[in-house]
Amino acid sequence: MITTLLYIEDDQEIGSFVVEHLRAHQYEVKWLRSGDRATEEVENCSLIILDVMLPGLDGFTVGQRLKKVAPSIPILMLSARTAIDDKLQGLQFADDYVTKPFHPDELIARIEVLLRRSSTFSNVPTNVKHLLVYEAENRIVNTDNEEEITLSGKQFHIFMYLIRHLGQIMTKEQIYESVWGESYLEGDKTLMVHIRYLREKIERDPASPEIIETIRGLGYRIRG
């Protein structure tokens, strides 16, 4: 299934190489030179990449309009502006923010994170080592033996939280607060216990884990 992105950018040179790069990564791109007709074109798009400095309506106005028309479609702001208050203004409706110049790979990574997070994402599984993770179906398959892995509620939430933040190190506080929904208390061993059980279920060798990495002093990470 082809994912369509709506890309609003007035600069010809930036636009053409970004579009080329996105197409090289198997995305279909609708490129608009201004935001005036954005709300009409947003249909069937899975994600919006929006430049701030646009002729006519500026990116913030366009973004706010798009969020009203299609609240479920994630918006990635792309801007050469760096003013700190711009960032805050943008993030009120934008789901992420990338400042120019950006690394093309970073852009792709951010797009993937946003798409994975959004509910419109297709059920293409995420591959992590020997695991295939079907987020939409809450299913994890071990490719070594093609068996489905069953996790307890908390284990599943921890795992999915790290999958959604693929490649990012999440601190114990962040994981705990996201999964348990309450603030993390110092010296709490609960999370460590859950991670140990989680590893026993998903790792080939729980003694030297490959999927959930421990970053000493910081937290945990699942690398894509």
Partner: peptide
Amino acid sequence: SHDLRTPLTVMSGHLY
């Protein structure tokens, strides 16, 4: 900011 970053973005894109 815009004027400085736009060429930089183009440059880094083409470098890539």
